[in-house]
Write a protein that binds this DNA or RNA. Structure first.
Lengths: 329, 329
DNA sequence: ATGTGTTTGGAAAACGATTTCCAAGCACAT
DNA sequence: ATGTGCTTGGAAATCGTTTTCCAAACACAT
């Protein structure tokens, strides 16, 4: 591989000069700049990022930490969108992403996790799906050793940003739309994972709506499980005229139950995944743009890594009605 | 961060000795080995992989090249399994994986792609979904600059391995099972992407079966598109008593069409994705274990990178009947 | 000619490991 | 004591960049 040294020799300048040209530093005349660039082009020189990282102590390497759940097509869809958005944006910003699953670090302590990331030159991490239970991750965040962007969880310190839709408002909006369209009075709300941040926020949204509209609200914990949502719907939908779910996957479980029971109840979900289109009945849902969310997360991480302070970024959401005709390709 | 130098000083030995201990080289006594290990432990030393890579000119870094198609939940499922398998196995083998999408390199020429990978220290690549049309990728493979594992495509040279199920046999098996169960005589076969290697193989499988069993075979090109499969089923299923599809996604499109037309035809697919369970009707399909396939691909790449020659690895497949009850969690 | 200030380019150290090569130390036979 | 061969540990070069610091070169005014 042709190195910076070869370029320097060929162009008749010093190594440092070539480096300056490559990194667009000042203090190099237009003449030399052109000469160097010409040689770079001619020799097909490509900088060795490994060497650059070692020298500059910067890697441009970040980790995307995801919760893997191969059992459900829903989480695959969401994860792929996160991965895709992150990788594309990272390439644009000359960074690179390594994907890590929580399962890979779940039996490590904080030091081990820290070492794992640091030895690979990772300085920035995007964390998705954080719950209050994730002790190690919280310690990791608190340690201050990394710049961190959390998706859908509250900001904790100066070197941490938070990105996500307004879950309170989104849950409020979609439920309001659904009950208005169907004139519902009694809502069965199937909630998410007990310790999740988003669970609490979405719950707050539905409570706010029910108080405002004087609706009867029955809350049951579905733990983001399709099966559990199905069971809860079987048991509790008789006494309610609407099923609001904290996720699309649970909405699907609920709808499947209603189809089996052969009764009609409007169902709404949360996420906006394609899978919703396959159930055979239309449902309202909140569409989150996961690609855009993770693009923003990367941008935010880039900001943090260049020394700026953390902030809270609220992403837009839209209300949609999912049907097969719209999703088939 | 504590470096090898710190360890050396603290242990009262030379840097090279520490390195030898770390890499399990011979020529270091048990006494020194223990002393060094004790200091490593005490200081919490973690080797800097960036420096190690630069020095040894080896990175343990491989690329997983995927075709992204966020429009379909099917490809997300498959891609996530590839990613998950690759990452987990890579961690086990002390390698790391960067995920790359073909969309990121599609407007580059061979040199640019080569540079893109080499500058990042990538020496091994796993390629999935190769077609005869992918000129750049073929040049990349031919260039011999990388060790390559192709999934589902024929082996081309000594430094390339191939991993995948026996598509000819799998297609033969699943179609045979389906026609036997339903006593079919006239098969509509909806084929895959025209230039894909797997398309040709699966086609060979169904042809073989139809010749053997003296069945009437109508082949139409569905290009792995759900929509196209739906349309083809609308047009051609009247004259046939069975729809065999080269992918699950197309099988779903076909089944949706049959449901809409309110006629019954057995449909079988290929892949074994969870999405199959959501359509409301059971279908036969070939289950490929994508996680295992990509784990094997990583192992294979590891073999190639340590100098061994390429080979063809045939993975097992199973025949399954997908139903909602089995996939709900 | 001299002084001053500003560009511009180069020499060299550093980053943190790996790896080669060599010398010291030791055991053992002569 | 000397020679031989083997084990063990260290010095130093190397990988390909970045970055700091300094000197040369130049322009311009005095």
């Amino acid at each position: 591989m042709v190195s910076i040294k070869d370029v320097a020799r060929e162009a008749g300048v010093a190594i440092s000069t070539v480096s300056k040209v490559l990194n667009n530093y000042p203090n190099v005349s237009e003449t030399t700049r052109q000469k160097v660039n010409e040689v770079v082009e001619r020799l097909g020189f490509v900088p060795n990022t490994v060497a650059a990282s070692l020298s500059s102590k910067k890697t441009g390497r970040v980790a995307l930490l995801l919760k893997l759940n191969l059992d459900t097509s829903a989480s695959d869809e969401i994860n792929m969108q996160y991965i895709s958005g992150a990788i594309h944006k990272a390439k644009e910003l000359q960074m690179d992403v390594i994907t890590v699953f929580t399962s890979m670090i779940e039996d490590m302590n904080v030091d081990e996790v820290t070492n794992y990331f640091e030895s690979q030159g990772i300085r920035g991490i995007i964390i998705y799906g954080l719950t209050t239970r994730d002790k190690v991750l919280h310690k990791l965040i608190d340690s201050g050793r990394f710049k961190i962007v959390v998706i859908d969880a509250p900001m904790v310190n100066e070197s941490t940003s938070c990105v996500g839709v307004d879950h309170v408002k989104a849950q409020y909006d979609i439920a309001k739309k659904t009950i208005t369209e169907n004139k519902c009075k009694k809502i069965l709300y199937i909630s998410g994972e007990e310790n999740g941040y988003v669970t609490a926020q979405r719950l707050e949204g539905i409570k706010k709506l029910c108080e405002e509209k004087k609706l009867k609200l029955t809350v049951r914990n579905g733990g983001f499980s399709e099966l559990r949502a199905r069971e809860l719907t079987m048991r509790f939908s008789k006494n309610n005229d609407c099923v609001v779910c904290a996720s699309d996957l649970m909405a699907i479980g609920a709808m499947k139950a209603l189809i089996d029971m052969d009764i009609f109840r409007p169902v709404c979900g949360f996420d906006g995944i394609i899978l919703m289109g396959y159930v055979g009945k239309q449902m309202n849902t909140v569409k989150q743009d996961f690609v855009q969310i993770s693009e923003t997360a990367i941008e935010e991480l880039n900001r943090l890594l260049s020394g700026e302070t953390g902030r809270n970024v609220v992403m837009p959401h839209t209300l949609v009605r999912m049907k097969y005709e719209d999703i088939i390709r």
